[in-house]
Design a binder for these strands. Structure first.
Lengths: 337, 337
DNA sequence: CGGTGAAACACAACCGGTTACATCAGATAC
DNA sequence: GTATCTGATGTAACCGGTTGTGTTTCACCG
């Protein structure tokens, strides 16, 4: 078998308790003793047993990340931010997605698989009314949300209303008045990202005294294909918009494709603005409201780790809002009648 | 505190041993007894303690996934395949990314963090000579590689030589003779994906009696930006190629951008073929050799789970090769002098 | 009807740490 | 010189399961 703490203790001529304290940096250990124990442990190539440590201490040293998608840009980028922080904090990252990658297959919900298994949970952009989300919250363990806000739960997001406003205002400033919008899904649930961005859109329109034409709203489901369909729908109207606000870059990509199919060029014939700052947006010359996606994950993870490390101290529930930035590229241009 | 197996045992009037066997479906438990125990456990909302179970049994029920990148398309797509399988197998997925030569992050290597912590390891496309990879292999635990092959280690890949051949042959079939290539990094390490694809490229060229012009080889580092630079280098030659084989779709995207910057149109002025089947390749009308990326992860995970479940039986080390498929789109066209 | 064996279950020894509490030596205080 | 305190360390009771080794029951057989 492998080396146990007992072996180290014997080799160092101390008790396992002292070894445990010495290796974990606890106080009340003589500096010399600690050093000797560390040396011996290294020599013996001793590795602590996480299972035993967890069982005895009650802490698992791991955090679950729950996400609806793994392979989509936004989610994998958030995940990379989270991972980097957890790695530095020496915490294990348990990855769980709540839907199968290809389809809507029914798999067992994550909540039961979390109990007694992790110290905290990070949830990426699940709809605020999602049942699985609430099952997770019902576990009542330290949790942080990313990309969603919910009362009394810590969260890290951008100001989606503002993002919608900024994007829309940009189009308005360029002189556009007939502005279309490609939203996510036709849900009436409040507070989702697309809902908020839509509110920002409306506010900007209203503030400018412009009408929101309901026939210029189309659903893109946050996918490229969806964005393409949505844009096609807008273009085949009797009176198409001169500018379009797509609520995600990926939908904007789809929209660009639809425009090309119709012989139109983004920025020349129709202005298009997205939200995200997707890797490809620069490549495709898309004007977009950039959000610091990796930081969303990073900061949420940092906050959670901090909370787990602060002994009992009731960390105040705060929702952190990160800034966005409009990057103007070739896909938007002044309105020409 | 929460319910323990003892509570269930008492409530059912049996020993903890019987509860343990009953709930895990082991034999030698009366059908009636088992049912009763299951019912009582459910009523009590009993959840087994993973730590205790792991400590006692020696199995962790979790698998580590080691990857150089999380947010890149190939890696996150593989990961999604892996996750789906592990979820179905009720195994925990520990995600760890490793620092890479180009990534400046100096973080502790994954190998030490694996010991006693997971039952098996899945490694995604680490260079075959990577030190961290070999540290992981030295742990001598069940391991499967994805996107790399190494002697005596199970792996799941595509035939990269063949992929290179197919892509190149496609260009040759179209009548191109002056063919450039955008490879990954200037390494002399054998057996990496780009090395193999390059070999396929050479083989196809040789078989067709064409010369491989070393000045038409450029490094794209598997990134969009790198592909753009590489293509720019090719275009600014005194005698540019009429067709280019980019060893990944993302580098091909960059190449497309470079072409546009030079007023050239992919498929009309210069033919371009990639490898991957990236989500955006259809959108950008890129001809590419599609590899089943998600299946790579899925199948590797399935094999590993199977190995872990087969009791001691020496599963033969086999490297699985998945098929690729050339998808011809608008970025390639016949050579016109 | 005693012998036999298998099925069903109980006992208890682990698995390998953590930590409250006890102990002990040396320093400080008086 | 003794009482007191403090820092360093040992003792041992857990943490909550798993599993090898009995023990009991009972059907089956000669």
């Amino acid at each position: 078998m492998s080396i146990t703490i007992k072996d180290v203790a014997d080799a160092a001529g101390v008790s396992t308790a002292t070894v445990s304290r010495a290796l974990r940096g606890l106080p009340n250990v003589d500096a010399g003793t600690r050093e000797r124990i560390q040396r011996i442990a290294a020599e013996l190539d001793y590795v602590i047993s996480p299972s035993a440590s967890r069982l005895a201490s009650g802490r698992t040293g791991s955090i679950a990340v729950i996400t609806p998608y793994i392979a989509r840009w936004f989610f994998s980028t958030v995940l990379s931010g989270v991972e980097s922080v957890l790695q530095d904090a020496s915490m294990d990252l348990l990855l769980m997605s709540v839907s199968t990658p290809d389809g809507q297959q029914h798999r067992l919900p994550p909540a039961p698989r979390l109990r007694r298994r992790v110290d905290g949970v990070l949830v990426i952009a699940l709809p605020p009314h999602d049942q699985q989300l609430h099952e997770v919250l019902a576990l009542n363990m330290p949790t942080s949300l990313i990309g969603v806000t919910l009362a009394d739960i810590p969260s890290v997001t951008i100001d989606d209303v503002l993002a919608g406003q900024i994007a829309t205002q940009h189009l308005i400033n360029l002189g556009h008045t007939r502005i279309g919008v490609i939203t996510g899904a036709p849900v009436e649930e409040p507070f989702t990202a697309d809902h908020d961005r839509h509110r920002g859109f409306q506010q900007a329109m209203n503030a400018a005294g412009l009408t929101v034409d309901p026939t210029l709203e189309s659903y893109g489901y946050f996918t490229i294909a969806g964005g393409e369909q949505a844009m096609t729908a807008l273009l085949t109207q009797r009176n198409p918009p001169s500018a379009v606000f797509a609520m995600s870059d990926e939908m904007a990509f789809g929209a660009m494709k639809a425009m090309r199919s119709h012989g139109l060029q983004p920025g020349r014939d129709i202005s298009l603005v997205g939200v995200d700052g997707h890797d490809m947006s620069e490549f495709l010359d898309l004007t977009t409201v950039v959000q610091p996606v990796q930081d969303l994950g990073r900061i949420a993870a940092e906050a959670l780790v901090l909370q787990l490390r602060s002994p009992g101290a009731e960390v105040e529930v705060d929702s952190i809002i990160l800034p966005t930035q409009l990057i103007v590229r070739g896909s938007t241009s002044p309105y020409k009648a």
